[in-house]
Every structure is written in structure tokens, then in C-alpha cells.
Simulated assay, not measured.
Amino acid sequence: MTVRWDIFCTVVDNFGDIGVTWRLARQLVAEHQCAVRLWVDDLRAFERLCPDIDVSLREQWQQGVQVCQWPKDWPATEAADVVIAAFACQLPSAYMDAMAEREVTPLWMNLDYLSAEDWVIGCHGLPSVKYKHVQKYFFFPGFQAGTGGLLREADLLERRRQFQHDDAAQKSFLHGLGVVREPGARLISLFAYENAGLASWFEAMATDVCPSHVLVPEGRVLGDVARWLGVDGLAPGALHRRGGLTVQVLPFVRQDEYDRLLWCCDFNAVRGEDSFVRAQWAGRPLLWHIYQQEEDVHLEKLEAFLRLYTQGLSESAEKAISGLWRDWNAGQDMAEHWKAVCAEHLELAEHAQAWCLEQGSRADLATALVKFYRNWL
């Protein structure tokens, strides 16, 4: 019989939470033949990732997934075989009662945030709280053996390889976004939160002898970009040049198109969790703007990832990329470390490919979840 899954998502950070759960839901349907209901409390945010969504509907089907609006007046609903509370969201009390009333207890998991911290390995798969007789388990994505791995479709790396070796396909894709790549220019994507360090980074690129072309999808960083350019506002299609830097604003694109954008670029600046993982699958050097947390807890997570990611780099390359990440996440002057990253670009590019292949050798997150359920049975 088909295993039924319910995935619950509350949209906290605009696109990160729904981005992860939407990818997971689609993969469980397409590759593991699961029946998935995705409960979402903010269909407006979801619509940006999946324009086919009708925000007025309480229930609809998208790409094989039953998408349900998470209502305040929770309807009588039978609990699924597997229940995922994404990122520690609180399930409706009536649904928790429905879990407890099932003849066969469901598997209840908290799909937690991605982290490279050492303690994650020790906590992954452990039981958490109980509701009546229903046990909840921790499930941690991660970068090391002993974690749940990363979201990755079965054919993703091969599709990326073919695309990156097809100049015509890249040119056609960029042309569809209104982008004409200048020969010899670094192509950079920028998806970030507001950041005081942006001006120093853009200034360094504008004064560099090597030209840079920065593609900025609609998002929160556009205000900082506009201030640096000295314009009142920016909309998709805007194109500005200053010195060796070209800045171009792109429309917000759906997830599959964003993947191809990352694959086209020589360097990708990303934010949050979903785009962070997809940039790693692009196999190109990257810059991560981590989601800020109280008491700078996020900086511990940043350092934990850097310790893993930079293993095997030369001292100069490690200092360059680590310094750039720290500058960016502290909103500090990035010029010196950006110049160092450019000088170490070949090594960093080779390292990004090697890191991608290493992570790709591990079981992906959806497969790990399905295996956990089968073992639990």
C-alpha cells in the first residue's frame, strides 16, 4: 500500500522553510511513490516559488503533491502514516489527537534545521517528546555520516553536469532572463538579506580590472543595492554599470530555474538554507548569508560549516574564503578578502566541485527519511 505522509510547514523566513518542504514533498512523490499532503500556512510565499499555486484554494494538487492551506479552524482530518513537523513547528492539537487515535501509531518526526555542528550527529534519530503514546523523533539534515544528509534529487548532479557542459543551453537560459554574458566577466548571483557589507564588496568589483556581472533576483538585499547605485528603487530588468561592475535585477524565479541560474554563475552568494544547499550542488564557489539569530548563535553554525568545508584547502585559500564569509555575515568591509578570493579562484573552484561530489556520495535526505520509516516499522 502507498505510504501516506503529512508535512507541516509554517513560513518563518519567507522562502527557506517552504522551499525545503516543497522540494522534499515533490521528491517523496516522484522518487519514492509516497502520497504527500503539504500543509502550508502562507500560500502567498509559496506562490513565489510555484506560480501555479491558487492562493484562494484550501486544497489543490501541484506536481503530484496535495497542497493544503493550514487553516486556523482545523478540520477533522485523519492522520497520515508519517508525520513531519518541519523546523519544529507546532502541530494542531486536533491533529495530534488524530495521531493518538490511529489504530497503528504514525511515525512522527521533527525535521530540524540544517547544521554542521558536531552535536547534530549524536542527536539525529533520537526520540524526543511524546504526545500521549505517540513518540516524536529528531531528524537532522547534515553534511557528515550519521546525519540525514541533504536534499538532492536522484538525477540532479547529472542534469547539472550536462547543463554546465552545454554553452548553448546556458546562453539560451540566460537570454530568457534578459542576461547577455560579457566575455571574460565573472558572472555572480546575489540572493541575500540586508547587509551593510555590500557597498564595500560592490566597490571592490567596480574598481577591479576584471569585470563582474552581478545578477540580483528580487529580494531583501535590493534596498542596499539601490543605495550603492544611488537610485530610488530597483525592479526586474534594471541594468546599471559602474566601472567594471554590471548589476542586473532579475525577477524572482521558480526553484528549477534558480538551480540553472546557480549552475550558470562562477560564484554564488546565497542565504538561508534552501539556496545554500542548492549552491553547493552547483559545484561553484559560494558565499553564505546565514539567518541571524539572537546572541549570535548563527555564527557558531557558520564556523562549524567553515571547519568542514575548508578542509583540504591551502592556507591562503582557506583564509580568503573564510575571511570573506565572516566579513559578509558581520556586515564588514569585504574588499581585502574578495581580492584574495579572486586570486585563489582556481583552487576554490576545484574545491567546490570536490565538495559537491563528496556530499553527493551520501544518501540524500528524502531517501534517508524513507529508510528511517522502514527501519522504524
Results as ranks from 00 to 15, higher is better:
Ala85Gly: 10
Leu24His: 01
Asp52Leu: 09
Glu31His: 05
Ala85Lys: 08
Glu47Phe: 06
Ala30Glu: 04
Met109Lys: 03
Glu59Met: 14
Trp61Glu: 15
Pro51Val: 10
Arg58Phe: 13
Gly64Thr: 09
Asp97Ser: 04
Gln63Ala: 15
Gly16Glu: 01
Leu24Asn: 01
Glu59Leu: 14
Leu38Ser: 03
Tyr95Met: 00
Cys50Tyr: 05
Trp39Tyr: 06
Ala98Pro: 04
Ala88Pro: 02
Pro75Phe: 12
Glu47Thr: 10
Val29Cys: 07
Asp17Gly: 04
Trp74Ala: 11
Ala98Met: 05
Cys68Asp: 10
Arg48Tyr: 14
Leu91Phe: 02
Ala45Trp: 10
Ala30Val: 06
Ala25Glu: 01
Thr105Met: 01
Gln33Arg: 09
Val83Ser: 02
Val83His: 02
Gln62Ile: 15
Val67Trp: 11
Gln27Cys: 01
Asp52Glu: 15
Val40Leu: 04
Arg48Thr: 15
Gln33Pro: 00
Ala88Gln: 11
Pro92Met: 04
Ala35Trp: 07
Met96Ile: 03
Leu24Arg: 03
Asp42Ile: 04
Ile84Gln: 08
Ala88Val: 04
Pro75Tyr: 12
Ser56Pro: 08
Gln90Glu: 13
Ala98Tyr: 03
Arg58His: 15
Cys50Ala: 15
Glu31Trp: 00
Gln69Asn: 13
Leu91Val: 03
Pro71Tyr: 14
Ile84Arg: 07
